[in-house]
Simulated scan of single mutants.
Amino acid sequence: MDGQRRSEPTPYKSTPKGIAAAGGLCARVKELIKLGAMTDDLYAELFPNSKYTLDRKTPTFGEFAQVWLNSRVIVDSTRDNYKSVLNRFWMPAFAAKRIDVITSADIRKAVAAIEWESPGVRRNACDKLSSVMQAAVLDGYIARNPCLSVSKVKLAKRQVDPFERDEAERIIADLYQHLQGATRIYAAYFEFAFFTGLRPGEQRALMWTETSEEKRRAHICRQIVKGELRERIKTKSVRDVLLNDRAMHALSVARELAAPDARFVFPPADGSGEWVKSDSTAKKYFLDSLTRLGIRRRRQYDCRHTCATMCLMAGMNPAFIANQLGHSVQMLLSTYAKWINSTSDWAELSKL
């Protein structure tokens, strides 16, 4: 090849049959070279584990995955997650292989060899691999995504666990009772969370310039991700959230506590920055309240679920609720189907 002698390993065993097969491969290579038909791509196909670096037109998986990752328009934390998944699970198996010779069988073998921490980790890793392969299809390097015939692990859907309306009211009252001074901001924070259903990252990123007490609206257009301010939200669609009386009350308390130059509605009480960087900042006050009240421990994110279920139980229009929460209607109906049914079950039964 290129006037150089090369010694390439073959998968054949040292048996008469294997020696004959290797001889046949050698003869084929010599004939292709003699005819001038040997290309880098064909050579890599014949010897996929070659130690020689070829000036290939078709990239290796490692090369293509790097280009794919660099081209993604995503925040740094998401990029780091993608990079970690690729390096941890797929580069050891496929980095040096040309992307067009990776088969479904190769992927199944790689999946079987990995000791997965959980079904969720496996599903996430396989989804990332499939995205890379699908990009290779669109770029014309492969004809079909080999991940399509690799079965996906089924995940148990995380159960929604909202608070009862009475529990929410008791938590809010308890926080206002026990938090004084600057820490009172966390009582307002959770009242606002229970009655707007904002995602925690969205609420922590809310600025005064995006609220209108006159119009009773909050414009949701950014979020906090791993302590950093991001000018985008999870669904990538900004929205206006209408504020009811309870949300307006929380806003008025936050206004009373705000410094003259405050930009964020719910800043950290200890003055450690302009915005609350992590859920753990308010977590202590929230869990202390649950302990005092004897309420079963749940996540702060369940404040959002509580708002959704309270709206459904009140008979509000699902399309309006979905818009308030930043969901699709389909997502709302699938996530909270239990509460949609419960609002009308007895009315339907009474028709009998």
Rank of each mutant, 00 (worst) to 15 (best):
E8L: 08
T10K: 01
T10H: 05
T15Y: 04
T15F: 07
P16S: 09
G18L: 09
I19W: 05
I19C: 02
A20W: 04
G23E: 11
V29I: 15
E31F: 14
L32V: 08
L32F: 10
D40C: 06
D40V: 04
A44N: 05
P48W: 09
K51L: 03
T53E: 14
T58R: 11
P59M: 10
F64S: 13
I74E: 05
V85G: 02
L86E: 05
R98K: 12
K109I: 10
A110D: 08
A112E: 14
W116C: 09
S118A: 13
P119A: 13
V121N: 13
D127G: 06
L129Y: 05
L129T: 06
S131C: 07
Q134Y: 06
V137N: 08
L138Q: 12
D139Y: 05
D139H: 05
N145W: 04
A173C: 00
Y176K: 06
A182M: 09
A187E: 04
A188F: 04
F190C: 02
F192H: 00
F194V: 11
L198A: 01
A205M: 02
W208I: 07
I220D: 03
E228H: 13
T235N: 15
V253W: 08
R263D: 13
F264L: 03
F266S: 00
A269H: 11
G273R: 05
S280F: 09
L290K: 08
I295V: 15
C307A: 14
L312Q: 13
P318K: 11
G326V: 14
H327Y: 15
Q330H: 13
D345N: 09
